[in-house]
Amino acid sequence: MPDLSKRLLHSHEGKLLLVVLALVIFLSLATKSFLSLQNMIDLLTSYSFSGMLAAGLLVVLISGGIDISFTASASVAQYVAMTIANQYHIGWIEVILICAVVGIACGLINAVLIGTLGLSSIIVTIATLNVFFGLLMFVTHGNEIFALPDWFVNGANWVVYTDKQGNPYIFNLQMIGLIAAFVLTALLLTRTNIGRQIYALGSNKDAAQRVGIKVFRLNLLVYGYMGFVAGMASLVQAQDAQSVSPNALVGRELDVLAAVVLGGASLTGGVGTVFGTILGVMLLAFLQNGLLLLGVQSYWSECFTGAVILIAVSALALERQRQRAGVRRVMA
């Protein structure tokens, strides 16, 4: 299919794919352990939290909004769920339900405030970030929960395969969460009427309103979905960390934003794909992991990450400028 490959090359995702592939080839030649199964499992596990949040944030960005408060929602969700799990005899289903309810509630609060206050979504969610996080820290006095129920600590992993040295390769809760978040988001965005409406809203809000899209209701869904994903991600993160700390997650919201934007989503809305977001998360994950494996001091990893973000957003902007110039030439 030459047509498809040509289209892919001209899309942002195609170029990003080439960059990621180049990075993978370089790292697998330069280091022994990068392309090992164990390293990939570790990467999937440790980036599950940001990956899941990236999927949720993608939906918000496509709708033309932004959410900064999701790390606070996640912190609240995992703290509430684990506190209740420690008090009462409940199982997985109840914990998942609690996280979903708390996350969705936080998301709905955002959507209602954005819809009624006439403030932009970034301002509202910065305010709610402070409200959620401030109240959580106030109520919990910043105390961590170290003792989690046994069934939760042991988690859900399945040994898929044991190699000759007896090293087990596992499939775990974190991977399920990550895959589920991306699949669910892809289905929502590309296979449902609501997904088309979200793209329409982000592309042109006034036009969307004129064709009869109920913006407020759609926003409830978008921010509610972000909250739901944040709740699920918080659960996965708590299981991975084996403890819950109220201030461990807040501050990571901008990293997630960076990954989604690297994946080609536009802050002005209407643009973005799940595939691009996956590549964006992969690029940052491979970069940070690769630097570590190459023996670069971990102190410098943030600097490289920043440089890559800066170069990528500049390249994206130049690309869009050229596209616009092309359109103008055709029109003239």
Partner: peptide, 30 residues
């Protein structure tokens, strides 16, 4: 980056924020 390349300010300064902090962390080892 913002004026001449047309990058949105949030993204450009998000990049420099990470990079500049990275330089500071790298030089002082935190």
């Amino acid at each position: 980056v913002i004026a001449y390349l047309g990058v949105s300010p949030i993204l450009a300064t998000l990049g420099t924020m990470t990079m500049v902090k990275g330089i500071a962390v790298g030089l002082t080892h935190g």
